[in-house]
């Protein structure tokens, strides 16, 4: 039974690693092809920036057009970019990996199921919270943030397509890198802990390197991913307030109402708390697993000492 479980977990972690690696490669490929394509404009005629600029609503004599709020102008990176094709290209690049990223993220509900079935020792509730938080970001918020700008039907308050696409891409990028460390680490750990690989030096060294990476890379990747998620959700706020997507209004037979903008605000308030708790927890784990040495030179020694003990 234990053998079956670890074989399954090895397969699961390897498959997830492969999937995220594929996303990462695709991301690089589609970004570079978007930006080097000379026929981009012809391929994506709806998205040319001339249309984007033309959507500024015409004012009437009684209500003149107020220039867009400055911070939105400032945060619109294309404002500084000389190339006129930046905005649609980022959205097109995001589209190419969107469905795959959503599918993979949704599939991680399996990790909650593993926790419920006690295949892995972790809390089902925490796992589920993390799953729902991330799935909301990628499947709900990122869709909203990139879909509306793509349609050109946006108001001046929502005008920052490149910003939305950039945050969505950044979220996927940082997740993909983190997962391309976490999954191979988990897969290799299963092999390294088995009887079969106990004396195979190459697997043990690989395990040590990946363990070090697993408990070090987060120092940079977690805050980066967190900031990208926050930027994406903040970017969603104008859409959430003006378009009321996913809202349920009273009256209805089930006597309930839902306001996505309020939900987003709750998430935005709760997210930093969750992030700091997780970040501190990971530092504690790092201290535990890497022997408390803050630098890379010390951790190797600690791992080696542990290895000696085992032998």
């Amino acid at each position: 039974m234990a053998m079956l479980a670890s074989t399954y977990l090895f397969a699961y972690n390897s498959a997830m690693f492969a999937a995220w690696l594929y996303v990462l490669c695709n991301l690089a490929a589609s970004l570079s092809s978007s930006f080097t394509s000379t026929t981009f404009e012809a391929q994506h005629p709806l998205l040319i920036p001339q249309d984007y600029l033309a959507t500024e609503p015409k004012g009437s004599a009684s209500r003149p057009v107020v220039p867009p709020v400055t911070w939105q102008k400032v945060s619109d990176l294309s404002f500084y970019a000389k190339t006129t094709y930046v905005k649609p290209r980022l959205i097109v690049a995001y589209r190419s990996i969107e469905s795959l990223a959503i599918t993979i993220q949704t599939a991680t509900i399996l990790e909650t199921i593993h926790a419920i079935l006690r295949v892995v020792r972790s809390s089902p509730a925490n796992n589920f919270l993390q799953w729902i938080g991330r799935t909301h970001v990628i499947a709900v918020a990122a869709t909203l943030a990139t879909y509306v700008p793509e349609t050109k039907q946006y108001t001046s308050a929502e005008q920052m397509p490149s910003f939305h696409a950039l945050t969505a891409l950044a979220v996927v990028f940082f997740w993909a890198i983190s997962e391309c460390i976490r999954y191979p680490w988990a897969a290799v750990k299963i092999v390294a802990d088995s009887e079969f690989a106990r004396n195979i030096g190459a697997i043990q060294s690989l395990n040590r390197v990946l363990t070090w990476l697993r408990y070090s890379a987060f120092v940079v990747l977690y805050p980066a991913g967190f900031l990208a998620e926050e930027a994406l959700l903040i970017g969603c706020l104008p859409f959430a307030f003006s378009r009321k997507p996913y809202d349920i209004a009273m009256p209805n037979a089930w006597n309930f109402s839902f306001t996505y903008s309020s939900f987003l605000l709750c998430v935005l308030y709760a997210q930093p708390v969750g992030f700091f708790a997780l970040y501190i927890h990971m530092f504690e784990q790092r201290y535990k697993k890497l022997g408390g040495a803050p630098s890379s030179s010390g951790t190797g020694d600690a791992a080696a000492a542990k290895q000696k003990k085992r032998a």
Binding site: M250, P251, N252, A253, N255, F256, S257
Partner: peptide, 9 residues
């Protein structure tokens, strides 16, 4: 809040 809502059905 919801059971005593003005738009309660």
């Amino acid at each position: 809040y919801f059971v005593n809502h003005p738009l309660y059905t």
